[in-house]
Design a protein around this nucleic acid. Structure first.
Lengths: 209, 209, 209, 209
DNA sequence: GATGAATGAGGATTCATTCAT
DNA sequence: AATGAATGAATCCTCATTCAT
């Protein structure tokens, strides 16, 4: 069926247009202050049409956040998996995070501030999905570190702590960059972050010999 | 005037009661979902009474956040200043942060999620005040590090970066602890954090000799 | 576009229904005591629907008053312009005023009592618009009198004073009729009013010769 | 009892201070927009104290209006009764009206606009008292005219109509003066008004002989 | 008597959602 | 399928009135 296919395609395209407008509006105003009318208008659809694609405001919000988040994590994982060397993987991880944030400052600002607790009870769905996605990401980082441990470049037993620590440093720096007026290049801090992290957890090589 | 003094005291006490209830409700529901009626009820006052102490919902919210934040920063600075040695100051800093968060998990959870952007325009006041308070804190940390640099235990020129990095690690770990279900002792991670930070920025002494 | 036209028509019809109900409620209770819920209910719409047609309570109120006032003045001017003779114009003016008031006693009662000063600042718009409309009306009356002066039936130089005087008599009689329980025919007082006015400003013809 | 007398005096003095402040505030803002707090503050008393003198806001309002109105009517009657001649009584009546209005523009503006209908149902008391006072006044004017009829200077049978007409002209002119920005002297229009009225209702003397 | 802090009922307004076209 | 007018629940804030001091 040619026709069904085209319909399917159009449906996804429209859905995406709505999600993109939603991201802009939600990022600018937060969940409550954003209105469906505004999003509909911005996306060039009638209000009612939004309800053909999403069950309601909350569904739209949750879908937008989760799908974007998944894309971010995927992008980062792809960047890391493109490298062979563990240390290069670490660097790629940091850089990929930073680049994504730089390219999606609006979304990330909003995300950092985002107020899951405000959502109606039902929407614990969002919190849970976000945490799930985050845990998957942490486990991915942990995997990279465990490989490093096997290679003898990280101290053993602390893979999990280190994963959180690395994520912590990255998020901390991102937070600062977002809250401070996005000054300077975030990607430019890759080496700084990597260095702090590595020279803390890396069994010190430079002074050893 | 004995009487005026007692009145003053009572006024402050009542105000505090309201702030405490507000913290609970705002933390549980976020700014928008929280209602003045709920806060009034919880604090044991009539709705109108809240307006004797605060100009409106937003003023109540902003006051609560800022005053709590100031208290947190003050507590941390006090803990640091009680120490002489730079390395002990660093440790005290991390520990004080963690202890405050553990004792104020509700507020902090809410704070991490808090959605400044959602507030009406006036309330950029909040964002600005929060950022100002944070910058003061960062400068305080920077001061500690600069003292360390003078003492020759940190690499020169990077005090500012290191301050952000340390704050970043701390906040990252806190974020993880808050988002993850507050599992384990946060204060117990003091050494871990201190070690990661120090063995990254400290001119390595243990391998030197 | 047939459809757009029908929509337009319906919109105006609904708007009118709301205005009519608003007139009844505002006339019965005054601006503050009237509630939007009451007006909505009376007009057979939901509360929210009122806000599709008017920006708020004040806009509804101002629109109602101004549009009615304009209609009144227009009706009166039409009646006057249908006559050729100056004295007949005067009589038509008085009668048209009285007939309008008789047919719109509710509105006029409210109007006489209406409390512009109570409205929020914005609504000085109302006061100004009302005064403007009134001044236009006074000038219209003045024009009629000036024509009479040219014809030699009124004393010269006093067109403006006479216009205010005639309007004053008319409004005075109306006021009495409205405040007193609408007793008797107001239109029936046309001759009385005309006679008092004319035999005061008219260069007396009957006794002259 | 000396003491009781002094107390009585003080009570009346305080009551008067409140009434005077109430007049200012009510005139400036209307019944609803005026607040008891404002009036109390302006008068230099505590809110609660107002309730020692008046049963509530409405009582304060009604008392203020009625007492002022009575004073106005009394002043006018006094001025008229000071004259012997009927035509001079008429002139004194018009002038006294105008002088009172000029001296009490604030109150009168408010009075013209005053929105009796807005008051809670109970307050029909006000409407009734105002109408009663007005009717007494009309009857007083009617009495003056009847005396003129007996003297043969006014047409018989129309005393009542003429009283309303005269009151109408006066109120009309006052209304114009109040609505228009109080421009010019109102008292200066005494002759104009008297002339229009007299040369309308007076059996024309000047052309007769 | 005087005070003024506390009370809480009452109403304008917004906006997610529905459903007739 | 798309539309968008109509809906009405939900909540902030004001201010007359009370009453303990």
């Amino acid at each position: 069926m040619e026709k069904a296919k085209r319909k399917e395609k159009e449906f996804i395209a429209r859905r995406q247009e709505i999600l993109e407008e939603a991201e802009i509006i939600f990022a600018a105003k937060g969940f409550h202050a954003a209105t469906m009318a505004e999003i509909a208008q911005g996306a060039g659809f009638a209000i009612g049409t939004l309800y053909q694609f999403f069950h309601g405001k909350e569904d739209l919000y949750v879908s937008m956040v989760i799908e974007k988040l998944q894309r971010m994590y995927q992008e980062i994982r792809d960047a890391v998996q493109a490298r062979e060397d563990t240390l290069q993987k670490i660097e790629a991880l940091v850089k990929a995070y930073f680049i994504f944030v730089e390219n999606n400052a609006g979304f990330c600002t909003f995300f950092v501030r985002s107020d899951g607790a405000t959502l109606p009870d039902v929407s614990n769905a969002l919190k849970e999905q976000m945490i799930d996605a985050y845990l998957v990401q942490i486990q991915f980082i942990q995997g990279v570190i465990e490989k490093g441990i096997e290679e003898g470049i990280f101290q053993p037993d602390k893979a999990r702590d280190y994963a959180y620590a690395l994520s912590g440093i990255i998020r901390g720096i991102i937070y600062d960059w977002l809250v401070g007026a996005h000054q300077g290049s975030l990607a430019g801090k890759t080496e700084l972050v990597t260095d702090i992290f590595l020279n803390g957890v890396l069994i010190d090589q430079k002074n050893k010999r």
